[in-house]
């Protein structure tokens, strides 16, 4: 069972190709197979012919279509990479310049801010001083007027005290002595 299977397998392998080519060819093949096949000159012309045909076809297809295509792709890529590197270098330069400009602008702004704050400070200081002076003067004025009013009130009070004293003394004398003195005499007595 195994024997027949194996043999038929190998016969199939050996005779797969000539199956379609007929008995005459098979006979021819058996004749020539006595020699070592790689040295058998029967098929030399055929092999040379088809090798040249297929190799030349391959050469032309490769050299006209595919190799230029791959070469172009590679070249495109390397030039693209070189371009990208160039533009990257360019951009880096730009970035560095921008950074310098930024730093310059920053220091300018800082200086400007410094002067602005200085002038503002001075302006505010002078304003504060002016307002302080004004407030001082106002306060002094108010203090003076207040003093004046106090004095007036005290004077008025003193006058009132005199009249009250006269009235009170008149009442006291009247109660004690039983007689009424004139205002003028009492005033004279007190004054």
């Amino acid at each position: 069972m195994f024997l027949t299977l194996d043999i038929s397998l190998f016969n199939l392998a050996a005779s797969a190709a000539p199956k379609g080519s007929g008995d005459v060819l098979n006979a021819e093949h058996h004749e020539s197979s006595s020699a070592f096949p790689p040295f058998d000159p029967t098929y030399f012309p055929s092999q040379i012919f088809w090798l040249l045909v297929f190799f030349i076809i391959l050469y032309f297809i490769l050299s006209k279509i595919f190799l230029p295509r791959i070469g172009e792709t590679l070249e495109e890529r390397s030039s693209r990479i070189a371009d990208d590197l160039d533009s990257a270098a360019l951009m880096q330069n730009e970035a560095q310049e921008a950074e310098k400009a930024y730093e310059r602008a920053l220091s300018d702004a800082r200086a400007k801010a410094h002067t602005v704050s200085e002038t503002t400070r001075q302006a505010i200081e002078s304003e504060i001083n002016a307002e302080l002076d004004a407030a001082d003067q106002e306060a002094m004025k108010q203090a003076e007027s207040a003093e004046l009013r106090i004095r007036k009130i005290r004077d008025a009070g003193m006058e009132n005290v005199e009249t009250i004293a006269v009235d009170v003394s008149q009442d006291i004398i009247e109660k004690m002595l039983g007689k009424k003195l004139t205002l003028a005499t009492i005033k004279k007595a007190i004054g």
Binding site: L25, P37, Y43, S46, W50
Partner: peptide, 27 residues
């Protein structure tokens, strides 16, 4: 036997036998 050539299609130019073989098929 694996190196044996077999004709797949007969082809002749003059006296030369340029038949298409299994080798030509593999090429």
């Amino acid at each position: 036997s694996q190196f044996e050539l077999h004709k797949l299609a007969e082809f002749k130019i003059g006296k030369y036998d340029l038949s298409f073989t299994n080798s030509a098929l593999m090429m």
